[in-house]
Measured scan of single mutants.
Amino acid sequence: PAHPYDRLKTTSTDPVSDIDVTRREAYLSSEEFKEKFGMTKEAFYKLPKWKQNKFKMAVQLF
């Protein structure tokens, strides 16, 4: 299930529990994912792991 970005980011005051914290981005809706990352999930997962992590750090999901 998708969760709002505000509850997934590492600085959230009301974090979602029971998620894989190493894959926070996977819980974003497709729309919100595209808004935050500027690309689709499919394109994101084709990137090298280090680049994925760099993007995730930039949007507080790492």
Score class of each variant (00 low, 15 high):
Asp14Phe: 06
Lys56His: 06
Ser29Ile: 01
Glu31Met: 09
Phe33His: 01
Pro1Asp: 12
Lys36Trp: 12
Tyr27Lys: 04
Tyr5Trp: 11
Val21Asn: 05
Val59Leu: 15
Phe62Tyr: 15
Pro48Gln: 02
Val21Glu: 12
Arg7Val: 11
Thr11Glu: 10
Tyr45Asp: 03
Glu32Gln: 09
Tyr5Val: 06
Asp18Glu: 10
Thr22Tyr: 08
Arg24Val: 05
Lys49Val: 13
Asn53Cys: 12
Leu47Ala: 01
Leu47Gly: 00
Ala26Leu: 10
Leu8Cys: 14
Thr11Val: 03
Pro4Ala: 11
Thr40Val: 06
Lys41Glu: 08
Arg7Glu: 12
Val21Leu: 06
Lys56Val: 02
Ser12Trp: 04
Met57His: 10
Thr13His: 09
Leu8Gln: 06
Gly38Arg: 12
Val59His: 08
Arg24Tyr: 09
Val21Ser: 06
Glu35Asp: 10
Ala43Val: 10
Val21Cys: 10
Arg23Thr: 08
Gln60Asn: 13
Thr13Asn: 12
Tyr27Pro: 03
Val21Ile: 13
Gly38Tyr: 05
Phe55Cys: 12
Lys41Ser: 10
Gly38Val: 07
Asp6Met: 00
Phe44Trp: 07
Pro1Ile: 14
Tyr27Gly: 04
Gln52Gly: 00
Phe62Val: 10
Thr22Ser: 13
His3Ile: 15
Glu31Asp: 10
Phe62Asn: 14
Tyr45Thr: 04
Arg24Cys: 11
Ala26Gln: 15
Ser29Asp: 07
Glu32Asp: 12
Leu28Tyr: 03
Arg24Pro: 05
Leu61Met: 07
Arg7Ala: 11
Tyr27Asp: 03
Glu32Trp: 05
Glu42Ile: 09
Phe44Lys: 00
Ala26Phe: 12
Leu47Ile: 01
Pro1His: 13
Met57Thr: 06
Glu35Gly: 05
Ser12Tyr: 07
Lys34Tyr: 13
Asp18Pro: 09
Leu8Lys: 02
Met39Leu: 07
Trp50Pro: 03
Met57Trp: 12
Lys51Val: 14
Tyr45Asn: 09
Leu8Glu: 10
Tyr5Phe: 08
Thr40Gln: 05
Thr13Lys: 07
His3Tyr: 15
Leu28Pro: 04
Glu35Tyr: 07
Thr22Ala: 06
Ser17Pro: 15
Asp18Gln: 04
Ile19Asn: 04
Ser30Arg: 13
Ser30Leu: 13
Lys41Phe: 08
Ser12Asp: 03
Ala2Trp: 15
Glu35Val: 10
Met57Glu: 09
Pro15Thr: 03
Ala43Gly: 07
Thr10Glu: 08
Thr40His: 10
Glu32Asn: 05
Tyr5Gln: 04
Phe55Leu: 15
His3Met: 08
Ala43Ile: 10
Lys49Asp: 04
Tyr5Glu: 07
Glu32Ile: 14
Ser30Tyr: 13
His3Asn: 06
Gly38Cys: 12
Thr22Asn: 11
Leu28Arg: 01
Ala2Met: 14
Arg23Gly: 05
Ala2Glu: 15
Met57Val: 12
Thr22Lys: 08
Tyr45Ala: 06
Lys9Asn: 14
Arg7Thr: 11
Glu35Ala: 09
Tyr45His: 05
Glu31Leu: 12
Thr10Ala: 04
Leu8Phe: 06
Phe62Gln: 12
Ser12Glu: 04
Ala2Phe: 15
Ser17Thr: 15
Asp6Glu: 05
Glu31Ser: 11
Phe33Arg: 00
Asp18His: 10
Asp20Ile: 02
Val59Pro: 05
Gln52Arg: 04
Ala26Pro: 04
Gln52Trp: 01
Thr10Ile: 11
Ser30Ile: 14
Lys46Ser: 13
Val59Thr: 07
Glu31Gln: 13
Phe44Cys: 01
Pro15Leu: 08
Ala2Leu: 15
Pro48Ile: 00
Glu31Val: 09
Lys56Gly: 02
Glu31Arg: 06
Thr22His: 08
Glu31Ala: 11
Ser12Cys: 14
